[in-house]
Design a protein around this nucleic acid. Structure first.
Lengths: 230, 230
DNA sequence: GCAAAAGTGTTAATCTTACACCCATGC
DNA sequence: GCATGGGTGTAAGATTAACACTTTTGC
């Protein structure tokens, strides 16, 4: 047991005698999802490693000694997007020996959901860009696998948990919500059945407001009940 | 990004300049489930840390440099139980700063499912014992939380995945299978409905054999279809 | 023949799916 | 008045839940 071994020595002797055990770095990688133009998107940065020339990668960083896992992914998000009020969820740890060309790095993957429209990012200057999940090439490292794993988990989780609202503005119509579900799941949904299902979940509060400035009949606006906010 | 920072330096300068980043140890902890006497059990060892005197803890160990995550948990299992042909699944990484009294240790939790009856362990000499999940006190470290998290995931997973068979002997009756589901879920199930549901899943192969040496009507024996084995 | 568990089917309730028409708005 | 999407209900099918009696075996 990890814990037992550590106790039997001082922290210092442990570090020295087991120095190899500390030659493993730990990072977090964030799959940052956004929603725009009826497409689910992910925030990627251009890799500047020669091994991955021309490829994109997820955002991540090494975990700092005084920082727990969630804090590290919040920090990555904050540094990269300026946002500090986001939905974040841990998904899986990836630790293949050769997943990183420069050495042993175990990474813990998170996904987060943010509202692209509301929080405009400064993207232009650092090769950080939104990519549709339907138009991704192979990513650097094992990031394609990480992305797939997170997307799969997202798809399962939205069925039962009121989390997609983190991708939408505060007020939204049922149509917007349905299009978002369709974008995430990659399927078309029946309008009447969708509305029935959502209504049964009891997640929404009717704002008694209507959409504005449309060239067709406006829909009612809803918001997530405040008790359910994440 | 972890990866980017690493590239820009040699591995050596990285280790030195970011020495603190390597002062984090990484372990795996295994929640080893077994099934005996109609109870779901978990394999625990007595903690020998003064901080956790009298408490039990999960089995775990530090991850070795040349070993990936799954391999580390297989090794822990092999060392502790002698088994190397077991179901193992990663669940979650736990990394609170103060979860370990001797220093920063991030742990990755797995659960595994083994057949207690078939693989008799040498348990007596090392304070390693099976404990019913219904009679657990508080565990050392954050192991109560880890156990809860793994149990929750197990309960969800058995609904759709043919994994509980790892807890049973090769041949079993539908009654045994039902009692196992009941033990894991902590609820009673209707016999007729249970059989219908299992039958629909198509996981089982009828062996055309019967139970033996019972003082009542014997049931038919089944086995997991070999294609579904994990 | 009695104790113990095996085996089996029907009904009601619920949930899911498929499907089509009229309505409100901007132009 | 026409284009666009908003809003709504029903019937068929599938799934789930509740529930009881007869059969087989060992003793």
């Amino acid at each position: 047991m990890a814990e037992k071994d550590l106790l039997l020595k001082t922290a210092e002797t442990e570090k020295i005698s087991h120095i190899d055990y500390f030659n493993i770095a730990i990072s977090v990688d964030c799959v940052i999802f956004g929603y725009e133009d009826k497409e689910l998107k992910v925030l990627l940065i251009k890799s500047d490693l020669k091994e991955f020339e021309g490829m994109y990668s997820l955002l991540g960083d090494l975990i700092r000694p005084g920082e727990d896992l969630d804090a590290a992914s919040y920090r990555v998000l904050k540094e990269r997007t300026g946002l500090d009020d986001v939905y974040l969820e841990q998904v899986h740890a990836f630790g293949s020996i050769n997943r990183h060309p420069s050495g042993r790095v175990i990474t813990i993957a998170y996904y987060s959901l943010i509202d692209i429209g509301h929080h405009k990012l400064q993207l232009s200057h650092n090769e950080l860009n939104w990519h549709s999940i339907n138009e991704l090439g192979k990513l650097a490292f094992d990031h394609s696998l990480i992305l797939e794993t997170c997307l799969k988990q997202l798809r399962e989780r939205i069925e039962d948990h009121p989390i997609v609202f983190n991708l939408l503005p505060e007020k939204f119509s049922l149509r917007q919500l349905q299009e978002l579900y369709e974008a995430i799941l990659g399927v078309e949904l029946d309008r009447r059945n969708f509305r029935k299902k959502i209504s049964l979940k009891g997640w929404l509060k009717d704002l008694n407001e209507m959409e504005k400035n449309l060239s067709h009949r406006p829909g009612k606006l809803y918001t997530l009940k405040s008790k359910l906010k994440t």
